[in-house]
Design a protein around this nucleic acid. Structure first.
Length: 480
RNA sequence: GGGACCGUAGUCUAGCUUGGUUAUGAUGCUAGCCUGGGGUGCUAGAGGUCGCCGGUUCAAGUCCGGCCGGUCCCA
């Protein structure tokens, strides 16, 4: 009976099913009536809001502003940069009618907004004084996913932010690309407690239309790599077709240098996969919509009054400390039910207050990550709770970091490579730089070059595939 | 891109092979009581276009086709 309410499979036995159950049962999301689309429920949206506000603050602090772009982009505009268009066109949703009238230049539901943004930018930018232009857009993008959709990881519409900047020099634009990647890294590592590897994408895997793409990658418990965010250097690839140019200080007309970058609600998917356990979600305190859940326990009416009074005192103290605390005063559920319910929802700390505790001026504290129980005195409750929340945040990160480093292996032999890729490893291997070798690996093992790490070490071994001298060492893995 | 499976009340589910009166059970929900420190117990009640459209038939949840939605595995 109890099994049917909670998560019915174990995370390490049936990972896909586990993930699906967690997102639905923890009430993060639900399926929309259209294939591949999901609805964010308040609990899920709330997590997105914390991610959003973390990124947003950092963007504002580095001189970015927010804007808004419409969802419809005319085909004529979308197709202006040809590689970009060719890359996206298989997954574009098209609007072909307005009412009963057919639309001549059909309209795309934005798969991404480079083309639209830059057609506007070309109007707004005239002089070197107009630069840099750094605008970010919080919106959704639509890319038709024909098969195997999965909430947060692969859906036909997703929430994200897309930033689009314009600079007068190549150097400044490249600096921007790095600044943004660092903002992403800090958000993901510090708030979501997920360690990442920073680096570049290969030519094959880069954003269509970019000069190069920088990325942060992490590994999921099933051994698949997940791209957590990307920051692209566009060079002048878009400024030329879209005529984004300015008069420089020498009065010379110059094409601008551009960047674009984004993170999506995919980060929520990563959060679930990395930290969750057999009981459901485990949320890092910094992004938990509720950080402390207070469960009052009572039987008689007089106990109830006393317990609720104490619970409410504690709640006030925690709220004043800017902690997100909530009392579960639902009368229709037993404490046991509530314990399981909040554990499934991943609330980092639970405080139980019952008649036994009141005379001792204490309460029972339970950590979600370790399920460790301890007694906590009322007198220094808030300091202790803050301390433990910080510990949980740190410990989740450390745990994930260990898993990531344990999963990285240096491999120079192809046979060993094939074996380890099946074991769900991140393989750090030498590569000659030839796309043919990259494709050969993809065909024979299903693995991609996930990232060419910035802090790459050189093995100086021959290319894992062709045995010619290698240029660099890169990380291969199967991806989402 | 290839394959397997599923859709019956808010949720899970029996019935479908072999068509036949009023669609099974649990959970959840509502009311009342009991209980409460790990998914509590009792009593009563409400809750259904059997995913949608069409076909076969005297008769379809059940058989056939199409569509919609979902899950899993492989590339």
């Amino acid at each position: 009976m109890s099994k049917e309410i909670g998560i019915t499979v174990k995370k390490n036995e049936d990972f896909s099913e586990w993930y699906t159950q967690v997102v639905i049962k923890a009430q993060l999301t639900d399926y929309a009536p259209v294939k591949g689309l999901i609805v964010l429920r308040p609990y899920g949206y709330s997590i997105w809001e914390y991610i959003k506000s973390s990124v947003d603050q950092k963007l504002k602090a580095t001189g970015h502003e927010n804007g808004f772009l419409p969802v419809l982009i005319p085909e004529s505009l979308l197709s202006k940069e040809t590689t970009h268009f060719a890359g996206f066109t298989p997954e574009v949703f098209w609007v072909t009618h307005s009412g009963d009238t057919e639309i001549g230049d059909r309209l795309a539901l934005r798969p991404t907004s480079e083309t639209l943004a830059y057609s506007m930018y070309s109007k707004w930018i005239k002089s070197w004084r107009d630069l840099p232009l750094k605008i970010n857009f919080w919106n959704s993008a639509l890319r038709a996913e024909i098969k195997s959709t999965k909430p947060f990881l692969r859906t036909s519409e997703f929430l994200w932010q897309e930033g689009h900047t314009v600079h007068s020099t190549k150097e400044e634009a490249e600096e921007e690309v790095a600044v943004i990647l660092d903002i992403y890294r800090r958000t993901v590592e510090d708030e979501l407690a997920i360690p990442v590897i920073l680096g570049k994408k290969s030519e094959k895997e880069k954003f269509v239309g970019a000069v190069y793409t920088t990325t942060m990658e992490s590994i999921m418990p099933d051994g698949k790599a997940l791209q957590m965010g990307t920051s692209h250097f566009l060079g002048q690839n878009f400024s030329k077709p879209f005529d984004v140019k300015f008069l420089d200080k020498q009065n010379i007309e110059t094409f601008a240098w551009q960047t674009s970058w984004g993170v999506s609600w995919r980060l929520i998917g990563a959060l679930i996969m990395v930290h969750g356990d057999d009981k459901g979600l485990v949320l890092p305190p910094r992004v938990a919509p509720i950080q402390v859940i207070i469960v009052p326990i009572y039987s008689s009416q007089s106990d109830k009054d006393a317990v609720l009074k104490k619970a409410s005192e504690l709640n006030d103290i925690l709220t004043k400390k800017c902690l997100r605390s909530h009392i579960d005063s639902r009368d229709e559920f037993t404490p046991g039910y509530k314990f399981n319910d909040w554990e499934m929802k991943g609330v980092p700390l639970r405080v139980e207050i019952g008649p036994r505790d009141l005379p001792k001026n204490k309460m029972v504290l339970v950590q979600r990550d370790s399920l460790k129980k301890s007694d906590l005195s009322f007198d220094n409750a808030e300091d202790e709770i803050v301390k433990i929340l910080n510990e949980i945040q740190r410990s989740l990160f450390e745990k994930a970091k260990k898993i990531l480093s344990d999963r990285i292996q240096n491999i120079i032999d192809l046979e060993q490579f094939k074996k380890e890729i099946e074991n769900g490893m991140f393989l750090y291997s030498p590569w000659c730089g030839d796309q043919k070798c990259e494709e050969m690996i993809k065909e024979s093992t299903g693995a991609d070059i996930r990232v060419i790490p910035f802090d790459g070490k050189r093995s100086n071994a021959p290319c894992i595939v062709c045995k010619n001298p290698s240029k660099i060492d890169v990380i291969f893995a199967k991806g989402y």
